[in-house]
């Protein structure tokens, strides 16, 4: 299955990214709770791009590994980057005033989470949810 990518540059594109994610999550066979989780994670990642980097991209694809299948979400931007990753990944840290959301929230919603960010260069995040 090919990758679906959505360019994020407005609040509308957040909705488009959610929609793309939900469609793939359904196809892969996720139940409604996990669909809602994956979509919420995509939403958070897209919002972060929209709020801090202004422009970026969210890509969603089905992944197959050995005997498991899942959905992989990749977010990338060339924005300001994150200065202190450790702090951003801490619970209770927030710049957008959200409770429980932010990157720690995305990490909780998904099974795998990888972040790579350089100040002044941008941020890349990969998150995977496996079908149980």
């Amino acid at each position: 299955m090919s990758q679906t990518c959505v360019e994020v540059r407005s609040e509308w594109s957040i909705v488009a990214a959610r929609q793309a994610g939900r469609t793939i999550a359904k196809e892969v066979g996720f139940g409604s709770v996990d669909q809602a989780r994956i979509t919420t994670a995509i939403s958070e990642l897209a919002r972060n791009i929209y709020l801090y980097a202004k422009v970026g991209e969210i890509c969603i694809e089905k992944v197959v590994e050995a005997n498991k299948v899942g959905v992989k979400v990749s977010a990338s931007d060339n924005g300001p980057g994150i200065k202190d990753l450790r702090r951003v990944m801490e619970d209770g840290y927030t710049t957008s005033g959200g409770l429980g959301a932010g990157l720690p929230g995305v990490k909780r919603l998904m099974d795998e989470f990888l972040i790579d960010s350089k100040e002044g260069e941008g941020t890349k995040i990969h998150a995977v949810k496996w079908l149980r």
Binding site: T40, G92, L99, G100, L109
Partner: peptide, 8 residues
């Protein structure tokens, strides 16, 4: 969203 806030 509530679930996230709860776990946090």
């Amino acid at each position: 969203g509530y679930g996230l806030a709860y776990r946090e």
